[in-house]
């Protein structure tokens, strides 16, 4: 124990250095998107899903193979989670993520966590800095609650905000990932790398414990939820897939077939206007924000092209991209009961 001022000074400096190194290694955060219940409620009503913390092991030393090798075991209709960043494309097959839920990866020099919750059908990417995310074993609204290893805070994946721990109230920094099928992804990104089945864990990656996506069956095809949810809605079937995005003051759900029919949709939000573009190649949507009244006209959108990094064109140059992701309707509504729904042009 320090007994003189000099020792006290050195100890304080060491303490500060240690604290700053811990702070520096925690996961990057920002302002969270809209949170429509108290943080305490999310934590108090979270439940154990059965496995203990890390009982569903994240992949922390991912190996990859090329598209040709992956063609040997992936079918064209197999679901994948894709990411394109700094010129590098990677695909994470749902058949592997259903057993691991999180991959702590580094893509073109950026430390990114790819996360997937099978019970809510949601795939999101997050910046992770020098930190790692793990599976806590707890669920809220059937959604995966992650924890970060540096600060031991708890983050429901859809909410992307800490509900417990030292970083409570902070939001994760989201990175766009694409939920699509293998044929569409490799067509857009022929040079893509694919997460290898050599994960270091013994799992039967040919079997999905919940059912299947190609075609949809079991849990994914319909029926009830396995865990209680905060709010229920019969506007769509519970397992119906919607495209959702949220800002600091609202959440919006888009019906994908309506988007595909229209090609693009507009939404006048509370504090901004939004353009939602359908990407026919990947069968997903991309969302852009503009100051009220500043969305481009329909004719200008005809020049938009869909390239490796998503839609581009002069009409989009002044717009801010907003993260969007697919989710099962019951889960989206449980987190965002006040959600706006767009199901027609």
């Amino acid at each position: 124990m320090p007994t003189c001022p000099r020792q006290l000074l050195i100890a304080s400096a060491l303490g500060l250095a240690l604290a700053s190194s811990v702070m520096a290694s925690t996961i990057p955060t920002g302002e969270p998107a809209t949170v429509q219940e108290s943080l305490a409620k999310y934590w108090d009503e979270s439940l154990s899903g059965g496995p203990p913390r890390d009982g569903i092991p994240s992949i922390d030393n991912a190996r990859f193979e090329d598209a040709g090798q992956a063609d040997g075991w992936l079918e064209d209709g197999s679901r994948i989670i894709g990411i394109y960043r700094n010129g590098q494309a990677r695909a994470y097959p749902q058949s592997l993520l259903v057993w691991h839920e999180i991959v702590n990866d580094t893509i073109a020099g950026d430390a990114i966590a790819i996360t997937y919750c099978p019970l809510t059908g949601t795939a999101l990417g997050f910046e992770r800095g020098e930190d790692e995310l793990g599976v806590s074993g707890r669920l809220v609204n059937s959604n995966l609650i992650m924890y970060n290893r540096a600060s031991d805070s708890y983050w429901p994946q859809i909410l992307a905000a800490a509900i417990q721990g030292p970083q409570k109230g902070q939001g994760l920094v989201e990175v766009r990932v694409v939920w699509t099928d293998w044929a569409s992804w490799k067509s857009r990104h022929p040079e893509t790398e694919v997460l290898s089945r050599r994960t270091g864990y013994a799992r039967n990656y040919r079997r999905d414990p919940y059912g299947g996506y190609n075609p949809r069956s079991g849990y994914y095809a319909g029926g009830g939820t396995l865990f209680p949810v905060f709010a229920q809605s019969d506007r769509f079937p519970g397992k119906h897939e919607i495209l959702g995005f949220r800002t600091s003051d609202e959440a919006v759900a888009i019906e994908p077939e309506a988007l595909a029919r229209a090609g693009h949709l507009r939404h006048e939000g509370k504090s901004a206007d939004f353009l939602i573009l359908h990407d026919p190649g990947l069968d997903t949507g991309w969302v852009f924000r503009a100051e009220p009244g500043n969305l481009p006209h329909g004719n200008a959108l005809e020049e938009v092209v869909f390239a490796a990094d998503g839609p581009s064109g002069d009409a989009l140059a002044e717009l801010e991209p907003i993260n969007a992701f697919e989710a099962m309707w019951f889960a989206w509504h449980a987190f965002y009961p006040d959600t706006v729904v767009i199901d027609s042009p």
Binding site: L47, S48, G49, G50, S142, P209, Y210, Y219, G223, G224, T225, L226, F227, P228
Partner: peptide, 21 residues
Amino acid sequence: APSLILLLGIPGLGAFGALFG
């Protein structure tokens, strides 16, 4: 029991999953 619940899709019963162990 946990496998049966998944198989039968009994709503809400997953909440008892931790007890099954």
